[in-house]
Design a protein around this nucleic acid. Structure first.
Length: 208
DNA sequence: TGCCAGGCCCTCTTTAGGGCCTT
């Protein structure tokens, strides 16, 4: 097993058949990038066949068709590979509670586990960019002028944009509060800090 | 055809309700 690295994180995004694994929804695509010391050093992207047809809403929303999924490997195979990819690293997603539910559900089906912490870029963005009209990934990417190729709602594209958002937030904190580059643990803690005490928390980090 | 969940967070709050965000 790889040793957990404080400077290496995995940013991931699932496309799914719906909103709730408890209601029978499954993953249909996983995309992820590995960030090491502020640079993307690896990526993972796979479609997966959930074993039933996806709705026309999901086909339209994601651009992933039943035709594309017909040739994809089953979820169990893809998720087994993905469990290897994430092993030993901390994880990040935009609205992480959603992706964590699907990750937990898919890994439970195949008896695999992961050993990292999960942090949410949306909770941090809500604290840092309170002026933004909303905190959807696409809105933040446009508001902050983050590089993108116009692809949204595909797993790897969304994971890449979330990774750029994460790095941008690290930069903005560093510049605005004159802190050293925050560790994953410090960012994770920030995501759970009440909005009112965020400036106090960051100023304390700048002095430490 | 149209609906489903759940954690966070604000407020007209905490013995609650509803918007935001993810697909």
């Amino acid at each position: 097993m790889k040793k957990q690295s404080a400077n290496t994180v995995i940013v991931l995004d699932f496309e799914t058949t719906g909103l709730s694994p408890n209601m029978g929804d499954r993953a249909i695509e996983i995309g992820a990038v590995k960030i090491e010391n502020g640079q993307v050093v690896d990526q993972f992207q796979q479609l997966m066949n959930p074993g039933f047809r996806v709705s026309s809403f999901i086909e339209g929303y994601t651009g992933i068709s039943n035709y594309m999924l017909a040739d994809a490997q089953p979820c169990d195979v893809v998720m087994n590979d993905f469990a290897d990819f994430i092993q030993g690293y901390n994880l990040i997603a935009h609205n992480a509670s959603f992706d964590q539910r699907f990750l937990d559900a898919e890994l439970q089906r195949i008896g695999r586990r992961y050993n990292g912490e999960f942090a949410c870029s949306m909770l941090i963005a809500r604290r840092l960019y309170q002026h933004a009209s909303n905190h959807k990934l696409g809105t933040l990417v446009n508001t902050l002028d983050i590089e993108n190729d116009g692809t949204f709602h595909r797993a790897l594209a969304d994971a890449e944009m979330t990774a750029r958002l994460w790095l941008r937030m690290l930069e903005d904190i560093q510049h605005q509060y004159r802190t050293p580059s925050l560790t994953f643990d410090a960012m994770h803690k920030l995501s759970k800090t009440s909005k009112a005490t965020v400036p106090t928390y960051l100023r304390k980090l700048a002095l430490s």
